[in-house]
Design a protein around this nucleic acid. Structure first.
Lengths: 197, 197
DNA sequence: TAAAAGTCTTAAACTAGTTCATTTTTTTTC
DNA sequence: GAAAAAAAATGAACTAGTTTAAGACTTTTA
């Protein structure tokens, strides 16, 4: 069977953890919703209830909260091949505190909450897929939460560049500062310093 | 059926997400290993391969890494009712970077890797249990990794006290500093300041 | 394609958190 | 229950990161 590019991408992502039959692939794809967001448009805003979990097939988005001062704190950049959304809101149906904004024209495949629940009934193998997906993300977040606390801003910047070399050039320095957890001014200093080494 | 205290505790933990029959409960319990650690003893040390994932039925342990300077960075305190271990090492069989040390005499139920794999074959419902367990932990860690980066040390201390009021009094100020990500000296200042308000 | 808006750089004055050194208090150990 | 070891408090000098402000550069929009 020949799939379109976005479908191949998501099926490969799933094949990392579980094998699906042709029929199951068809079934799975039928539960997804295609979405496009233009640059600067929002996929989600604070106080929305997260209706979907998204897989990015093209583009780049930033996930962030705003603190009382209105300063953005970026919790992740999501590019092709990544999953994004607000899992807490998606699961509990409580309003989210997050904004998700496209920093480039982006294309996504979304799964709605009813279809997510249906998925486990129809193809129980997906319990394993999500168990393993969450397990991996957990390991990443545990590392990040420790590093956020124990490394200096310069070290966090160097780590980020090493880990996501393809993302660094697609985002603004200001947004990177919001992710690293420092001011844009200090980000500028760090970059100058690191590059002239 | 009448279970001993530690078994009731772990079965209740599981019942949050899935229902087990009497027979499944028996089967599950038979896959667990009881472990005791005396105060100051290690459950795991850097370079070990994590052979078990643990559920704490009694006591308190700290999970930490040492940086190049030998400064400890505590990633969690685990008390009764919590799960602990190093999931990355447990899954990949690569050596861990973590130490897990009992800060009180502690009792645990461990599941070995072979039994963990067996569990999914014998009682597939456990895929769902772990999917939901990891999902929840993920939401917690996402929050912590954002807070670690965007809150001040004083705010992180206040949050910790609010979230884990029963843990604060069981650990030393020095260990708390290692968790909050500051020096014991600065921790002491913060506590003095916050308490006199 | 000009104007407007946003991003990046630089620098000076400031604040949160560190380091090092010393003393007091609490806990552990025999 | 005394001695030793570890934890906590305090203070002075230091460093990483913030704030504010202003000018240069780049991107967006009409």
């Amino acid at each position: 069977m020949n799939y379109k590019e976005s479908h191949t991408l998501i099926l490969n992502n799933i094949a990392r953890f579980i094998d699906l039959t042709e029929l199951e692939k068809q079934k799975y794809l039928s539960l997804l919703t295609e979405t496009k967001v233009t640059k600067k448009a929002f996929l989600m805003q604070a106080n929305d209830v997260a209706k979907y979990e998204y897989f990015i097939t093209k583009g780049c988005l930033k996930v962030y909260t705003l603190d009382e001062d209105g300063t953005p704190h970026i919790s992740m950049f999501a590019v092709e091949g990544y999953w994004t959304g607000d899992m807490a809101s998606f699961m509990t149906k409580e309003p989210t505190r997050y904004f998700i904004k496209a920093t480039e024209h982006s294309e996504l495949l979304g799964i709605s909450r009813p279809n997510y629940d249906l998925l486990f009934q129809e193809i129980p193998k997906f319990e394993k897929f999500y168990r393993m997906l969450y397990q991996r993300s957990l390991v990443n977040y545990i590392r990040r939460s420790n590093h956020g606390i124990s490394l200096t801003a310069e070290e966090r910047y160097i780590e980020f560049k090493k880990k996501y070399p393809n993302v660094v050039n697609r985002i603004t320095q200001k947004d990177l500062a919001g992710y690293i957890g420092i001011t844009p001014e200090f980000m500028s200093k760090i970059i100058t310093k690191v590059n002239q080494k």
